[in-house]
């Protein structure tokens, strides 16, 4: 997640000070990714170093204000215009866990899948409640609309995970069935029609 660009986007609407940026960032995203004020100031000083923001005096209460520079605006435009890179997927703990569970001794992979599915669907239930609350009244402002979008992203992401887990399970079941019925035709014939097993197979 890009805090840098998030802060630039907020600053584009006018000069702000650190803890104000933090509050606005959180209300826009429903506190889904909480920031501490230290992170905000660290990011601001890097942005200042890179010439994307500049200190811009103080407000009445003596808070140091920051404002976006022209190159900051250019940077922000290009962020909005460039798709988020998906070619380098971040490490996914669940994918790694299932990959490791395949054939691991003493591990019931279907139990691993179910326990994750339980957790994921439960999270979706919680998000869906929040969403129902958010939709109880028509979203009144920018922050409420933004929060709804973030919430729905969390739901869609959890849904993708739940679907993938369903898929993994049925894939494993199908593979296990195929492995159980596949080779050794003699064994199968023997099981199905014992009377015929006496027939000599070796005829040359």
């Amino acid at each position: 997640m890009s805090i840098r660009h998030g802060l630039l986007a907020l600053l584009e609407r006018g000069p702000r000070y650190g803890s104000q940026l933090r509050t606005e960032f959180e209300s826009r995203t429903g506190s889904t990714w909480p920031l501490n004020v230290g992170q905000v100031y660290t990011t601001l000083s890097r942005l200042e170093r890179d010439g994307l923001v500049a200190q811009d005096g103080e407000d009445d209460q003596g808070h140091a204000l920051y404002s976006i520079t022209d190159s900051g605006r250019t940077e922000l435009r290009s962020w909005f215009e460039t798709p988020v890179d998906r070619s380098n997927p971040p490490r996914d703990e669940l994918a790694i866990k299932l990959a490791m569970a395949v054939g691991a001794p003493g591990v019931d992979i279907r139990a691993v899948i179910q326990s994750q599915r339980h957790h994921t669907v439960k999270a979706m239930q919680d998000y869906t409640r929040l969403k129902a609350q958010a939709l109880a009244d028509v979203p009144a402002n920018r922050d409420e609309v933004a929060w709804l979008l973030v919430l729905e992203q969390l739901i869609f992401q959890a849904e993708a995970e739940a679907r993938w887990l369903d898929h993994c399970e049925s894939r494993l079941v199908r593979l296990a069935e195929a492995a159980a019925t596949d080779p050794e035709p003699e064994v199968r014939t023997a099981n199905r029609a014992p009377a015929r097993t006496a027939r000599p197979r070796t005829r040359r």
Binding site: H118, V121, M124, A132, I155, F156
Partner: peptide
């Protein structure tokens, strides 16, 4: 339902 997104509207999801 087989759609987790809709199941999530329920109070209880039974597997």
């Amino acid at each position: 339902t087989h759609e987790p997104r809709y199941a999530a509207w329920a109070d209880r999801v039974v597997f």
